[in-house]
Simulated scan of single mutants.
Amino acid sequence: MLLVNNIRLSRIIINTWYVDIIMIASCMGAYFIREYLIAYHFSIPTIIPTVLGTAIAFFIGFNNNQAYDRWWEARKVWGGLVNDSRSFARSLLSYVPQSDENNVLVQRMVHRHIAFLYALKAKLRGTVDLIYVKYLDEEERTQVEKQANIHNAILHKQSEDLEKLYSCGKIDGFKFMQINELLVKFSDQMGMSERIKNTVFPTTYSYLTKVFIWLFVVTFTLVISQEMGVWSIFMGWMIGFVFVSTQINGMNLVDPFENNVAGIPLNQITRTIEINLLEMMGEEDTPPPILPINDEYVL
Rank of each mutant, 00 (worst) to 15 (best):
A122W: 03
L182H: 11
F176W: 09
C168G: 01
P97K: 06
K157I: 03
K146E: 15
Q178I: 15
R125N: 01
F174T: 12
H151G: 00
M192V: 06
A115V: 04
Q158T: 06
I179E: 06
A119F: 01
K197S: 08
E101Q: 05
Q143T: 13
S187Y: 12
T204N: 09
L182D: 10
K197W: 02
V106G: 04
R125L: 05
E140G: 00
I154V: 14
C168Q: 11
Y95H: 01
L155S: 08
Y135G: 04
D161P: 03
F174S: 07
I114K: 02
Q143M: 12
E160F: 10
V104I: 05
V106M: 03
V144M: 06
A148C: 00
K157T: 08
K123I: 01
F201W: 03
G191H: 02
T209Y: 02
Y166D: 08
K157C: 10
K121H: 02
K175M: 11
Q147W: 00
V184T: 14
L155K: 06
D188V: 07
S167D: 12
S94V: 05
G173P: 00
R112V: 01
Q98W: 07
M109F: 03
Q107T: 10
T142A: 15
F174K: 12
E194R: 04
F201L: 04
V144Q: 09
M177K: 15
N149M: 10
E194V: 07
L183T: 08
V184Y: 14
D172V: 09
V184N: 14
P97G: 05
A115G: 10
F186N: 11
L208D: 07
I114W: 01
D188A: 12
K210L: 06
S159M: 14
K197C: 02
E101F: 01
S193L: 02
S206H: 00
A119V: 09
N152T: 14
S167R: 13
Q107K: 13
K164I: 07
D172L: 10
F174W: 07
G126A: 01
D188L: 12
L162C: 08
L136N: 13
N149P: 00
S167M: 12
K121P: 04
Q98H: 12
Q189N: 13
G126E: 02
R112K: 07
G191S: 12
V110R: 05
K121D: 02
C168Y: 03
R141L: 12
N198E: 09
T204A: 14
F212T: 11
M190R: 11
N152R: 15
Q189R: 14
V200E: 01
V144D: 10
K170Q: 13
K175C: 06
D129L: 10
M192K: 08
F176Y: 15
I179N: 03
Q98E: 13
E194N: 09
A119L: 09
Y205C: 02
L117A: 14
V128Q: 11
R141S: 09
I150G: 05
S94W: 00
T142D: 14
Q178R: 09
D137R: 12
Y118I: 04
D161T: 00
E139D: 13
L117V: 14
E181W: 01
G173S: 13
D129W: 03
Q178H: 10
K210F: 10
T127C: 05
L183I: 15
F201M: 02
D137F: 11
G191D: 04
K146A: 15
E145P: 05
I196M: 01
N103V: 03
A119I: 09
K164D: 04
